[in-house]
């Protein structure tokens, strides 16, 4: 990235640190994660053990997948705030439809709203050029409305969590949470897609310079529509995983994950303006946030304080990245 030949004179320590951060954003993140774990161990000696690791992973995985949705949309300069509603919808529909339906049918029914919302988001952003933030906020409001209407129709039949999702969400085999069975393929797929496929490069290209991408023949609206449908599908699958973890279907199940998912992607080094970032950083960002949440719970910080902190983290990190980019 930075060419040392263009900087003949010795650079100051501060600049060197900045350049290092810009070139290898993962290393400071991992250091931060380790520091947080050490603080946790100091505050509560003995808390960091095998069970804690499995538990942290279990809670970090849904967050990491949702943050994956944010990462991909942010690479194009967008954002997807409807992931919480989509995840809640698919989880709620799955839990209520499994009572009377075949699991496969219930699964398809649960994924249907995800695809539809993704499609509407994609068309709104790609064709009508609505700002992604406003578009996804709007579809999530509409989705919540539909969910409330739907809830009335199934109030008599009750809900249950399928055993398989229970196993996937909470189960631990040989010290490894079963959720990794879902997460590892998803993560590999996202990383592979972003780095090695044409679609992934299109996302970077569109986010980096949309006009240049269009002029070189990228069909913007098709890329964006595919992206938002993919993001919604991932959110839907996360919902299924999350219901197996939380085990209480409600109409605001995954809503609390939305802000942290944005924060995780931003901390992980994905630029909210598009064109820069990747999924590996996001995964570490999700881990950092999960450990941070544990830490704040131990320190008895209320939910409100956590949100304030997340807000400032997003702002501070974005401002810091902006400085780094401007410096070069």
């Amino acid at each position: 990235m930075t060419d040392s030949a263009t900087m003949p004179q010795p650079v100051s320590f501060g600049r060197r640190v900045k350049r290092f951060m810009a070139d290898r954003p993962l290393i400071p993140l991992i250091i931060l994660l380790i520091i947080l774990v050490v603080i946790l161990q100091i505050l509560r000696p003995g808390i960091v053990n095998e069970r804690w690791l499995a538990n942290t992973a279990k809670f970090a995985i849904p967050l990491a997948i949702l943050a994956g949705c944010q990462t991909m949309t942010m690479l194009t300069g967008g954002i997807d705030l409807s992931v919480g509603t989509v995840a809640t919808m698919s989880a709620f529909i799955m839990a209520t439809q499994i009572v009377n339906q075949d699991p496969a049918v219930a699964f398809l029914l649960a994924m249907l709203p995800a695809v539809l919302i993704g499609l509407v988001n994609g068309i709104g952003v790609g064709v009508f050029r609505v700002h992604p933030l406003i578009m996804t906020l709007g579809t999530s409001l509409i989705g919540t409305g539909f969910l409330q209407v739907y809830q009335r129709t199934v109030i008599a039949s009750g809900a249950k969590i399928p055993d398989f999702l229970n196993w996937l969400g909470t189960g631990v085999t040989y010290g490894f949470p079963n959720a990794l069975l879902l997460f590892v393929p998803v993560a590999v797929l996202i990383v592979f897609m972003l780095n090695r496929t044409g679609f992934g490069r299109l996302l970077y290209a569109v986010g980096d310079n949309e006009r240049a991408a269009r002029l070189s023949g990228v069909r913007y609206w098709q890329v964006i529509t595919a992206l938002y449908v993919l993001s919604s599908l991932l959110a839907g699958i996360t919902g299924l995983l999350y219901i197996g973890l939380i085990k209480a279907p409600s109409l605001s199940l995954a809503e609390p994950l939305v802000l942290p998912s944005v924060a995780a992607a931003v901390i992980g080094g994905t630029s909210i303006f598009g064109g820069r970032g990747g999924y590996t950083g996001t995964i570490i960002g999700a881990l950092i946030l999960t450990v941070l949440t544990t830490l704040l719970t131990i320190l008895q910080m209320p939910e409100g304080g956590r949100r304030i902190l997340f807000g400032f983290i997003v702002l501070f990190v974005t401002a810091a990245y902006l400085r780094i980019v401007e410096d070069r």
Binding site: L259, G304, G305, F312, T318
Partner: peptide, 26 residues
């Protein structure tokens, strides 16, 4: 001051103000 685009700053402030509201009354 930060020169971060308005949409990001006000989004971050949305988190902050929401959290502050929860602190005042949960």
């Amino acid at each position: 001051v930060t020169r971060v685009p308005d949409i990001v700053v006000t989004l971050a402030m949305l988190f902050v103000l929401q959290g502050a509201a929860l602190l005042v009354l949960d």
